[in-house]
């Protein structure tokens, strides 16, 4: 293959095709494939869903149904850091709403929104299972607990 042609190949597409090929014979492959696709692209663009549908021979309506059912899947690009604020019971009774309010003010976005500089996507979740440290939030895979309106700003500043 000549260099010019190589440039035309989208490495993400190659990666996605490899994932589809790995799962195509497995039962119940759709959700793991969508999870991997979202890891590759950061979200699930329409073209990716169509490619997954063709690869796994699943009607597009079903794929769209699955993607919109589960909270994890995103149809729009996400920020560099995903901030999940817990409003589970324990966090609720220990003042999670105040923490959320501070974060919303700080970032200028609401649930599901992404900051203009693409730094954060804010999500409200219903329990990250760290109730002992309520109120809590999770940034990417890191859990932060015992939050207050004061310390949350400082934590946010650590993420670029």
């Amino acid at each position: 293959m000549c260099e010019a042609c190589e440039d035309l190949i989208d490495p993400k597409e190659t990666e996605l095709d490899a994932v589809i090929a790995q799962y195509v014979r497995e039962k119940g492959a759709l959700i793991p494939v969508l999870q991997k696709a979202q890891e590759i692209y950061g979200y699930l663009p329409t073209e990716v869903l169509k490619r997954v549908g063709r690869g796994l021979r699943i009607p597009l309506s079903k794929i769209y149904g699955v993607v919109t059912f589960y909270a994890q899947f995103r149809l729009m690009p996400m920020g560099r850091n995903v901030l999940r604020v817990c409003l589970g019971t324990a966090c609720h009774v220990r003042g999670g709403a105040k923490v959320l309010e501070t974060i919303e003010q700080e970032l200028g976005v609401k649930d599901g929104g992404t900051t203009e500089d693409q730094r954060f996507t804010l999500e409200i979740v219903a329990c990250i299972g760290a109730c002992g440290l309520a109120p809590t939030m999770m940034i990417n895979d890191e859990v932060h607990g015992r939050l207050t309106a004061e310390n949350v700003t400082e934590i946010l500043s650590k993420y670029e």
Partner: peptide, 10 residues
């Protein structure tokens, strides 16, 4: 046998 329609969201 078409599956053009399905549920979305929840």
């Amino acid at each position: 046998g078409r599956s053009v329609l399905d549920f979305s969201f929840r």
